[in-house]
Simulated assay, not measured.
Amino acid sequence: MAGGNGKSGGRRHPVLLWVALLAFDIGFVVILAPTATLQRFLHDQQTLTVAMTGTSAAREIDLMGARWFRDTLIRTDAISDMQRWTDPHRVSGGTPFNETVARVRGVLQARLNAVWWLFYVAFYRAAVIAVWLPYAIPVLAAALWDGWIRRRISKWRFEFSSPMRHRYASRGAGGLVLLAAMIPVLPLPIPPLVIPFALGILAVTARFWVASIQKRV
């Protein structure tokens, strides 16, 4: 009994680890990253995208990411409202308290500018992923269907389904999904061709996951 509890207590849920890493990444940007660094990072990512996908595809990605950013944060007045609330020039009077409030607002406004750039990078990265989805969805659907047919055939033949294979395939697919969800805010330029490569691995692991689902006779 004690050994079983120790084993379960030592496990770490991957979703919790992903949430912790995501919070650390965003917190690092909010607290420390200068706006100029994020601008340079976005420029490096765009340059890499142009080099690996071509000017036409890179332009489509730029327009898509900019449109999502505009519709989500600009047209909803989210940015303008936050800029107004943190504007240090809106504090009137020359008292020490007002001067402190103005300095705090200035710091908050600088950090918010970094957050807006992080959002722009995230939307840009999401657009890179979205460009590949029309090609990835049919491949993933075919892989799932093939896995399901393979499972039906093995069931009719009374073949053994490996729980080990199912577990590893499940963990692999889940890990790739969590990684894909974290790609938009990773603090390093990512080659766009990593996306279809990862989606291909996801299709293969999903196929094995479906094919190795435990059968009930």
Rank of each mutant, 00 (worst) to 15 (best):
M82A: 12
V15L: 09
I201Y: 01
R105Q: 11
D146P: 02
V128D: 00
R105E: 06
A130I: 09
G9L: 14
A33V: 14
A173D: 01
A102K: 03
R207A: 02
G27N: 06
V101T: 07
V115K: 03
A114F: 01
I61A: 01
A198G: 09
V101D: 02
P189H: 04
E60M: 14
G172H: 00
A114H: 00
L118Y: 03
V29K: 01
R11D: 12
A122W: 04
A198P: 03
R152D: 07
G4Q: 13
F97E: 09
F160R: 05
W116E: 07
L21N: 08
L63Y: 12
V194N: 07
W85N: 14
G106A: 06
R157N: 12
G10R: 12
G54Q: 05
R70M: 13
Q83V: 10
A33H: 07
A142Y: 07
R75W: 11
L112K: 05
D71M: 10
G93L: 05
A206S: 10
G3Q: 15
A33R: 09
T76P: 01
Q109V: 09
I61C: 01
T100M: 11
V210S: 01
P96V: 07
R90C: 10
Y120W: 14
W116A: 06
T53E: 11
M64A: 15
F119M: 14
M182A: 14
A102M: 06
L17M: 14
S56W: 14
R11S: 12
L63H: 13
G9D: 13
R111C: 04
F24I: 15
F28D: 11
H13K: 08
V107F: 09
S56Q: 15
I149E: 13
V128M: 05
Q45R: 06
L73Q: 04
G10K: 10
T49H: 03
V91T: 08
V185F: 06
R12E: 08
R105C: 08
S80Y: 09
H43V: 13
A136H: 02
A110E: 11
A66C: 08
V30Y: 12
E60C: 13
P14E: 04
A206R: 00
